[in-house]
């Protein structure tokens, strides 16, 4: 994707049609890389699902954490890039996000973490889903590849730090803290799902 004359004309066209141009990446005023990096931190959907996966994976110790992390980061990066490149207008339905949170959180609350292999697959699934969403949400921003890179770095940092925190707790025999966290995440997901289905906002 290049910002050639076409992009300029598109911008000009936008200004003539005067719609509200809304870039969905939060702006840090530090350029597209940092806008992307801040994205997983300030987008609750992304942050919560990363936390949920990290908590669940941490119940399986370092190996589980590693697998989930690898799957998540790789898939998220590739999916964001792919979404940028192909421009497929995809967005994850809120109910799917809520369901994912409930599933991951519940599995964690009842201490039924899947095997590292399944964790890897879960990481990939979550990464693809949210990466596609991020890619299409952020396409309005300039410097798309830098934003993709930023998103990838942001996700990597957040996921690594939270997973490591969880693994640390698990090793210290504080797995119960992870289960409590899981139940809170599941509760958030459940409440959000209820909100979507029949809440006051419709």
């Amino acid at each position: 994707m290049k910002h050639g004359p076409r992009a300029l004309l598109a911008t000009a066209a936008c200004s003539s049609l005067a719609p509200t141009a809304s870039a969905h990446l939060v702006s840090t005023e530090l350029g597209p890389f940092y806008d992307g990096a801040a994205h997983p931190l300030v987008t609750p959907e992304d942050l919560l699902v990363i936390l949920a996966l990290a908590t669940l994976a941490a119940l399986r110790g370092a190996e589980g954490g590693r697998r989930a992390l690898v799957g998540l980061c790789a898939a998220w990066t590739v999916a964001t890039a792919a979404s940028f490149a192909w421009g497929a207008p995809l967005s994850a339905p809120p109910l799917l996000v809520a369901g994912l949170l409930v599933a991951l959180g519940l599995a964690c609350a009842v201490n039924r973490a899947p095997s590292p292999r399944v964790l890897l697959a879960l990481g990939i699934a979550v990464g693809v889903l949210h990466g596609l969403e991020n890619g299409s949400a952020a396409r309005a921003a300039d410097g798309v590849w830098l934003s993709t890179l930023g998103i990838a770095s942001g996700v990597f940092v957040v996921a690594t730090l939270t997973t490591a925190c969880g693994v640390h707790l698990e090793r210290r025999g504080a797995a119960i803290a992870l289960r409590v966290a899981g139940s809170w995440l599941a509760a958030i997901g459940l409440l959000f799902a209820g909100w979507q289905l029949a809440g006051p906002a419709g």
Binding site: L106, A109, I176, R179, V180, G182, S183, W184, A186, A187, I188, L190, L191, A193, G194, W195, L197, A198, G199
Partner: peptide, 20 residues
């Protein structure tokens, strides 16, 4: 540990019922 695990879940279940 188990009570704080159970309570938020049950509570949101109630909220879910309330929504519906």
């Amino acid at each position: 540990a188990l009570l704080p695990v159970a309570f938020p879940l049950a509570m949101t279940l109630g909220a879910f019922v309330g929504f519906s």
